[in-house]
């Protein structure tokens, strides 16, 4: 296990500031204070390096801003969905909508996870729908959904690649048995991804296969995040703290 300098008492105070520093959001004074801390704390330097790697990966993602008419249409229909909660919530006509909404959240989550330096602001759901939305046909909505599926897939794949890179850089930090367990379970999720992809290839419009694929993506991102967090804790020599990260384990 790589041993870095012992954790500084002020690490907790600097944790959030590291995020801000990586995002370039600190003023000169705060940045200088952070730099001074990083110069003396290998563990925080490692965290900053990991976050920087994730930021770079996020920066390579293609821009994604749903068209306003898509947001307006989705928000309107979701409002209807909520109001009609007593009705079945997974009718065929709503599947595409639910999928799209799920994927929008998923994409936002994956981008957020990587802390993109300049995340696109989602259009206000309450904004008056543009004229285009009024005349939007079901076919157009399906095309939008297909496009979101493709983009979300792309985002997840890149997000996972970025996280895997971070995990790879931390190889040897974790206990071998624990690392093997995590690797085995990542393999289980990979199998789910493969099966879902094959199903989508055979039946491109099958919503269950699509849902399954993105659920597997989401679970892989969550497990990789936990693995990265474990690596960071172990790097600090804070093994007892490793148990505390379980708050996010397999979180749905």
């Amino acid at each position: 296990m790589t041993r870095h300098a012992s954790a500084d008492r002020s690490c907790g105070r600097f944790a959030e500031r590291i995020h801000e520093g990586v995002d370039g959001a600190l003023d000169a004074g705060a940045q200088a204070e952070l730099d001074a801390h990083l110069a003396s704390c290998a563990a925080c330097r490692a965290l900053a390096a990991d976050l920087e790697a994730m930021r770079r990966a996020a920066a390579e993602l293609p821009g994604f801003t749903p068209r306003p008419e898509v947001w307006a249409s989705l928000s309107r229909r979701l409002a209807d969905e909520f109001a009609a909660r007593s009705r079945p919530f997974w009718t065929g006509a709503r599947v595409a909508l639910a999928m799209a909404a799920t994927l929008l959240v998923a994409v936002a989550s994956s981008v957020w996870v990587l802390r993109s330096p300049a995340p696109a602001s989602p259009p206000q759901a309450s904004a008056a729908p543009p004229a285009a939305a009024v005349i939007q046909t079901g076919e157009n909505l399906v095309q939008d959904v297909d496009e979101h599926l493709r983009i979300a897939d792309e985002h997840y794949v890149k997000a996972i690649a970025g996280l895997e890179q971070v995990v790879k850089s931390g190889e040897g930090t974790l206990d071998p048995a624990l690392a093997a367990t995590l690797q085995k379970n990542l393999g289980v999720i990979d199998q789910a991804i493969t099966e879902s992809r094959e199903a989508i290839k055979a039946q491109p419009n099958n919503q269950l296969a699509q849902t399954s694929l993105f659920e597997a993506f989401r679970q892989k991102v969550a497990l990789l995040e936990d693995t990265v967090a474990l690596i960071n804790v172990m790097r600090k020599g804070d093994q007892a703290g490793a148990a505390k990260i379980l708050g996010g384990l397999s979180k749905s």
Binding site: D8, A15, G237, G241, K244
Partner: peptide, 28 residues
């Protein structure tokens, strides 16, 4: 708990334990 908050929590605990260092070869 989101990733950022989780990391903050971890680091906070690390700082706490730094005052009373704990260190072991912990593998079963």
């Amino acid at each position: 708990m989101n990733s950022s908050h989780r990391l903050v929590g971890i680091l906070a605990l690390a700082a706490l334990l730094a005052a009373a260092p704990a260190r072991a070869s912990w593998s079963a």
